[in-house]
Amino acid sequence: MNPVAVGNSQSKQQLRLNWPDGREQLLDHAELRRQCPCSQCRAFRLKGLAPLVDDRVRVIELNAQGYGLQLVFSDGHERGIYPWAYLAQLGLNTTPL
């Protein structure tokens, strides 16, 4: 399931996803960076290591990939493509509209 709208707030440091069922999901930029699904970041987490991410990191670019989003971060990291289903699972801050 793809969101019906995607927004990125630099000031609030949040990615906003609006889903077809009416849910609005807010995802923190730093947490998105910590949960990057690229092979390098996943391998790091599988070793039990916590990625060091500055809380001031921002998503500076969104690139649609059909099945998800490639996020480009202010720290230069751009390898992760976040499938829609993965983003939906990350959403702990989900509120009804």
Rank of each mutant, 00 (worst) to 15 (best):
F44T: 05
G76M: 08
D75H: 00
G48L: 06
P83W: 06
V57R: 05
V57T: 15
Q35C: 10
G7I: 04
H77F: 02
K12N: 12
H29N: 08
P37E: 13
Q65H: 07
G91K: 01
R34D: 02
Y86V: 07
I60L: 10
E24I: 14
V72S: 13
R45A: 11
E24T: 13
A88E: 15
R79Y: 07
L49S: 05
Q35F: 06
V59S: 01
E61N: 11
Q70E: 13
H77S: 03
K47A: 15
P20C: 11
Q40F: 07
Q13A: 14
S9E: 10
D21S: 13
G68T: 02
Q40I: 11
R58A: 09
C41W: 00
P20G: 11
A30C: 12
V53C: 03
D55N: 12
L26G: 06
P37R: 11
R58S: 12
V72W: 04
P51E: 02
Q10F: 05
A50R: 14
Q25S: 13
A85G: 13
C38S: 08
Q70G: 12
D55S: 15
Q35D: 10
C38A: 10
G66L: 09
G7P: 07
L32Y: 02
L27M: 06
L69T: 10
P3E: 06
K12P: 04
N18A: 15
S9H: 09
Q40Y: 07
W19F: 09
E78N: 14
L97Q: 14
F73S: 04
R16V: 12
Y67E: 08
D28I: 01
T95H: 14
P96I: 10
A85E: 14
Q13H: 14
L27V: 12
L87D: 00
V4M: 09
L71R: 05
G91Y: 02
Q14I: 02
W84V: 05
L15K: 08
Q40T: 09
N93Q: 12
L90R: 09
N8R: 15
N93M: 09
I81C: 07
C36W: 02
V57E: 05
L87E: 02
L97R: 14
L62W: 06
Q89T: 07
F44A: 03
H77Y: 07
R16K: 12
E78P: 00
F44H: 11
L97T: 10
P96M: 13
